[in-house]
């Protein structure tokens, strides 16, 4: 069993810049922050390394960090500019029985994260859900389509600045 700090040291010595920092200030579960465009290699290492063996992806979730800058224009409309999305990976090793949380942070303007689909097949639908709800693009994902919402839905509902549409397919909402 390894603590998140030890796992961070192992990753840091293997990947240097791709592993950014460890955030252990929060009350529970320290998080390791990784570069979104290197995550697939890090994931492969996490699964295949003898000391780590993270064979199971418990959960993958997209999150809107809600840290954009609020800008008010001349007419008083408030829009959010900048800010970031995160993707959290909760990993568990069924053989060694230790856990770790990985987080990648990506810009809202160009939300691109590498897919971990080849490493853990369990992630396929979770990534599609994150794409569906936040519009996070998972690079090299085999089948990145909307999953819960209809294919022709506009916008990404779980973004904090999402506004309910007035019409869907020509129907007024609420009808």
């Amino acid at each position: 069993m390894k603590t998140p700090e030890e796992i961070f040291e192992i990753l840091k010595s293997e990947f240097q810049d791709a592993v950014i920092e460890i955030d252990s200030e929060l009350p529970v579960e320290p998080i390791i922050i990784v570069d979104p465009l290197k995550i697939s290699k890090v994931a492969q290492f996490l699964r295949d390394n003898e000391e780590l063996q993270f064979d199971s992806l418990m959960n993958l979730s997209g999150v809107d960090d809600n840290n954009g800058e609020k800008v008010t224009d001349e007419e008083g409309n408030v829009t959010v500019q900048g800010g970031t999305f995160s993707v959290y990976y909760h990993l568990h090793s069924t053989t060694i029985d230790h856990k770790v949380t990985i987080r990648v942070i990506t810009d809202k303007d160009k939300p691109e994260v590498e897919t971990v689909d080849p490493v853990w097949k369990a992630s396929t639908w979770h990534e599609r859900e994150a794409y569906d709800m936040y519009g996070i693009i998972f690079l090299n994902h085999p089948d990145l389509r909307r999953i819960l919402l209809p294919d022709d839905w506009e916008g990404y509902p779980l973004r904090k600045d999402y506004e309910n549409p007035e019409y869907y397919d020509g129907m007024k909402i609420p009808y």
Binding site: V28, E29, M58, Y88
Partner: peptide, 16 residues
């Protein structure tokens, strides 16, 4: 302020 991932053994499997 903080975050948590908690999982339980629901009848259908791991509910987190």
């Amino acid at each position: 302020k903080g975050h948590i991932y908690h999982r339980v053994e629901a009848p259908k499997g791991e509910l987190g």
